[in-house]
Design a binder for these strands. Structure first.
Lengths: 187, 187
DNA sequence: CGCACCATGTAATGCGTTACATGATTTT
DNA sequence: AAAATCATGTAACGCATTACATGGTGCG
């Protein structure tokens, strides 16, 4: 899947692996992230498959840059992927929910503490999607060909993130409430 | 992570690999799922690590069963995992959002069709969490030691699932609305 | 003086999916 | 007659994480 994200970004601009990673961090990270090391490996594979090509830009003070750009074959691959419909529901993996599921084996105080930490983290993300992410999208749209059109879709995914975080915060608040009440009753 | 799910279930009852898979499907699947083949491999590894042990129950008509049970070492491992706090936000991977993010390169009709399919699938899940999942939890609680207590946590994860699906359906409805309006304007 | 940023990569290990392989019983 | 359920596993492959390895610039 990472292959298609990289093709997507390279279809807008040429980029180094480092840049691509920075792009993921600020835009797709909340629904798809990858480590820098993985990006380098994937780019190398994609180049050997002819989907992208690279040229070296020499730098004196820093390591030379390897700048990747998409090939015709890469553009075709991206189109084929978009054309092939996605017909299943994405499955999530949540360590938080997993730990809560088995929390009956655990100390209740500790469980509540952990959920409170999660709440703080998700509140922070919620604020982030409402402010910074909006700005990042605006800036991205200005520097991308056809950016105003892309922006509609970028903002739809941002909106998903915002609503998801709002839902999680609400659910955490109520769950903590239920568990805290139980804790008092036990005494 | 799968290791801990299996330890969690085996800490309630002894189970075969097949049974454990069925358990995942009906309870943790919406936040953690695994293929049967992966479960068999993981169980084998866990046994060689001394976390679980197995005995064969011979059957005439069907393949013999290998019934796993947790060892003291396994119980300790589960406790250690629960005690070690989880301090990060779970990251999601969503092909749906990924495709939407790059939908600017794609045909708008096709995008809308795909989102409508997603909506139908998520509506179905929402109904499932509101009905079947509740019953599965009740039945599970009756046949599990200390089931009434565990049930509180199981239901909290079910509630998360329900709210998540409700949020997704709402977001999809509005997103489809926005894109459909755009489509008309273009004509 | 230390940390963050820029910039590239390799190696080891682990986790997960798909396909392969078998085969009887029960339900539709 | 076909599909689902019960029941076990192996093999090949791909994707992802963590650690290793290097090193200059700029900021507080």
């Amino acid at each position: 899947m990472l292959k298609y994200i990289l093709l997507g970004f390279l279809n807008m601009h040429a980029h180094t692996g480092y840049d691509l990673h920075a792009h993921l961090e600020t835009s797709t990270a909340h629904f798809w992230n990858a480590k820098l090391s993985q990006i380098y490996v994937t780019l190398k594979k994609m180049e050997s498959d002819g989907l992208i090509q690279s040229e070296i830009e020499e730098q004196d003070d820093r390591p030379d840059k390897r700048i990747y750009s998409i090939t015709d074959s890469g553009r075709t691959e991206l189109q084929d992927w978009l054309d092939k419909p996605h017909t299943t529901v994405d499955q999530m993996k949540s360590k938080m929910l997993l730990r809560l599921f088995f929390a009956g084996f655990h100390n209740l105080d500790t469980v509540i503490t952990e959920l409170n930490l999660q709440k703080a983290l998700h509140e922070q993300r919620l604020r982030y999607y409402r402010t910074e992410t909006r700005q990042i999208i605006d800036i991205g749209a200005e520097s991308t060909p056809n950016g105003d059109y892309h922006k509609i879709f970028w903002d739809a995914t941002r909106e998903f993130g915002e609503r998801y975080e709002a839902m999680v915060v609400e659910w955490l608040t109520e769950t903590i409430q239920i568990l805290s009440t139980m804790q008092v009753e036990k005494e």
